[in-house]
Every structure is written in structure tokens, then in C-alpha cells.
Amino acid sequence: MPENASANLTIRLNGDWSMTGVTQQLLPLTEHLAALSGVHPQQAQPVIDLTEVALFDACGCQLLTILLRHLRLLGFAPVLTNIPAELRGSIELLGFGHEFETMLDIAKGHA
């Protein structure tokens, strides 16, 4: 499915990205990464959509950071999109804004 003609590969994150749920996020993430494995980094840009993320804490921030680093390591230039306002607040408070800043496709939060 992901390898359609579109240059954007949307990775939809959802559910519990806090301490209580991060381990459950690993399997879907591995599947998303597997879907990217045959894709040439120049041909597609992963778009990580956070619309459906319900809970997000430092643990989730860390996992997202690691995911983004991993994608960049593979040569992709991921972007983040649809970050719910409260998530943005948590990210700033927890000091992860700078990690995600360059990947925001929409206006960034205040520093």
C-alpha cells in the first residue's frame, strides 16, 4: 500500500505514547519501517501524522526522537504533521521541541 505513486508516505501514529503504552507502539512502528524498506529515500518523504495520538509524555518524546533519527539514518527526511495542541505543549515543556522543530511542516510552537 505505501508504495503508491505519491511522494508522501504517511505514517499514522495513534493511541498511547506514554510510559504505559510505548511498548505497544513498537510493533506497528516496525511494520511501518518494513513498508519503507524497499523505498528509495529520494523518492518519498515520510509524513508522520500525530492526529490520533492520545497520550504523550517524555517516554513518547524519546521514542519519537529515536524513530526520527532512525529514518534520517536511512536517508529519509521525515516531517511531522497534525500535532494536537496539547501534545505540542508537552513537547515544549519536556524540552523536545528542538528535536522536532526542523521536521514540523506547519508553524512551530514558541521557543
Binding site: V22, C61, Q62, T65, I66, R69, G95
Partner: peptide
């Protein structure tokens, strides 16, 4: 103002998301 740093983290495949690899400044 808060800045989180993850100086060193294991590769994604071996990453345990419940373990904290970050520090804060």
C-alpha cells in the same frame, strides 16, 4: 526553558522505549 538531549541511544531495533536515554538541561 527546557532542552532534552539524547546523547546516545541504541539502534531502533534494539531500543527499549521504557528505558530513559535522555538528560535534560
Amino acid at each position: 526553558s527546557v532542552k532534552a538531549e539524547i546523547p546516545e541511544a541504541p539502534p531502533f531495533e534494539a531500543f527499549d522505549p521504557e528505558v530513559c536515554h535522555a538528560r535534560w538541561i
